[in-house]
Amino acid sequence: MAAAAAAGAGPEMVRGQVFDVGPRYTNLSYIGEGAYGMVCSAYDNVNKVRVAIKKISPFEHQTYCQRTLREIKILLRFRHENIIGINDIIRAPTIEQMKDVYIVQDLMETDLYKLLKTQHLSNDHICYFLYQILRGLKYIHSANVLHRDLKPSNLLLNTTCDLKICDFGLARVADPDHDHTGFLTEYVATRWYRAPEIMLNSKGYTKSIDIWSVGCILAEMLSNRPIFPGKHYLDQLNHILGILGSPSQEDLNCIINLKARNYLLSLPHKNKVPWNRLFPNADSKALDLLDKMLTFNPHKRIEVEQALAHPYLEQYYDPSDEPIAEAPFKFDMELDDLPKEKLKELIFEETARFQPGYRS
């Protein structure tokens, strides 16, 4: 834990890192770190609560700039109880001085990944967590956004079992017609939660990839272990087919990539493993919904509104309290091709509203 900075004593240090967030945020305490930044909790002297502050230093890398800009653009436009918001952003007053960006968010005690390492969940908890994931996802999908990296560590939890989806750095506007060349190379989302079509096709992607990830998360809540822990690309596919069985001819016809289709045709026939054999203690309604989410063919996979209306979630289902976005989200430009200098300018502009004396 960093010592509390005395008023006016300059930035606090946390594990050798400068955290320049005073005077409003003090009493910093280390939480963890990701690929390009550290997260601390801090005391907000204005709202009198502890908050989470993520320090991001992305400006050396085009990919990190892209992810940072995506996350900020999306989260500043989203407003939903099951999606983490941005409360404040701290950065230098000029673009030349801006080396880091500090993002202030609600402090959540833990995440689903940490929880599943230590606790076996009751059916009631599984049901409530799944409902909140789908409630947040309904809003995301209504904005025409794909999260693309749903996994237990991106689901934040607090002691009252509130759940918030975080990390929109890989999110995209849904565009089933656009052929994202190089899709697989830039697709760094965790393999275990990846839909089979991501490994088999490169053309376009749809909201059904997020539903697949939610199915993987439900299976993990039922058993405290990942359902498809593939060691590499082909191993991942083999794990999936080992449980779902061989795809039907109709399902194979959806695979545009001939090499991928021929690979699947070359494999020995596998039978589907019954879900109640894998999860003998699970609620039968939970397994019915799991089956509809972990469907090989993305066109037959359940959609988020149908999933919310499934009998497993009937005690929570309330369409009048499951809000959607006001308007579909649009990125003005494809960020993939922009140089990091341009992305830095866009991050600077996007964060201006939090600067003292800002006038829109």
Results as ranks from 00 to 15, higher is better:
residue 5 A to N: 02
residue 6 A to T: 13
residue 8 G to W: 02
residue 8 G to T: 06
residue 14 V to E: 07
residue 14 V to M: 09
residue 14 V to G: 15
residue 15 R to V: 05
residue 19 F to W: 03
residue 24 R to M: 09
residue 26 T to F: 12
residue 35 A to K: 15
residue 37 G to N: 14
residue 49 V to M: 15
residue 50 R to H: 02
residue 56 I to F: 15
residue 56 I to P: 14
residue 57 S to A: 14
residue 57 S to Q: 04
residue 59 F to P: 14
residue 61 H to E: 10
residue 61 H to L: 15
residue 62 Q to M: 14
residue 62 Q to Y: 09
residue 62 Q to A: 09
residue 63 T to N: 12
residue 69 L to K: 02
residue 70 R to L: 13
residue 72 I to F: 13
residue 82 N to T: 12
residue 84 I to V: 06
residue 86 I to M: 07
residue 86 I to P: 05
residue 88 D to T: 00
residue 90 I to Q: 03
residue 93 P to S: 12
residue 94 T to Q: 02
residue 95 I to M: 10
residue 100 D to C: 13
residue 104 V to E: 09
residue 106 D to Y: 14
residue 108 M to T: 03
residue 108 M to L: 13
residue 113 Y to N: 15
residue 114 K to F: 11
residue 127 C to G: 11
residue 130 L to F: 12
residue 132 Q to S: 13
residue 133 I to D: 07
residue 135 R to D: 08
residue 140 I to A: 03
residue 141 H to P: 12
residue 142 S to M: 05
residue 145 V to P: 03
residue 145 V to T: 05
residue 145 V to K: 01
residue 146 L to A: 09
residue 146 L to Q: 14
residue 147 H to S: 01
residue 154 N to H: 11
residue 156 L to S: 04
residue 158 N to H: 12
residue 161 C to R: 01
residue 162 D to E: 15
residue 165 I to V: 08
residue 169 G to T: 03
residue 174 A to R: 11
residue 175 D to W: 03
residue 178 H to E: 09
residue 179 D to I: 08
residue 181 T to G: 04
residue 182 G to N: 04
residue 185 T to V: 05
residue 186 E to M: 03
residue 189 A to F: 04
residue 192 W to G: 12
residue 194 R to C: 11
residue 195 A to S: 13
residue 195 A to L: 06
residue 197 E to M: 05
residue 199 M to N: 05
residue 199 M to A: 10
residue 200 L to W: 13
residue 201 N to F: 09
residue 202 S to R: 13
residue 202 S to W: 06
residue 204 G to C: 11
residue 208 S to L: 10
residue 210 D to H: 08
residue 212 W to V: 01
residue 217 I to W: 07
residue 218 L to Q: 14
residue 225 R to A: 07
residue 228 F to T: 00
residue 236 Q to M: 06
residue 239 H to L: 14
residue 243 I to G: 03
residue 243 I to A: 01
residue 250 E to W: 05
residue 251 D to T: 09
residue 255 I to S: 12
residue 259 K to V: 04
residue 261 R to E: 07
residue 262 N to F: 07
residue 267 L to W: 03
residue 274 P to C: 07
residue 276 N to R: 07
residue 276 N to W: 01
residue 278 L to V: 10
residue 281 N to G: 01
residue 282 A to C: 03
residue 292 K to R: 07
residue 293 M to T: 01
residue 293 M to G: 04
residue 294 L to E: 06
residue 298 P to V: 06
residue 298 P to Q: 02
residue 309 A to Y: 06
residue 322 E to I: 00
residue 324 I to N: 13
residue 325 A to W: 03
residue 329 F to K: 07
residue 329 F to I: 15
residue 331 F to P: 06
residue 332 D to G: 10
residue 334 E to P: 00
residue 337 D to H: 11
residue 346 L to C: 06
residue 347 I to A: 08
residue 352 A to H: 04
residue 353 R to C: 09
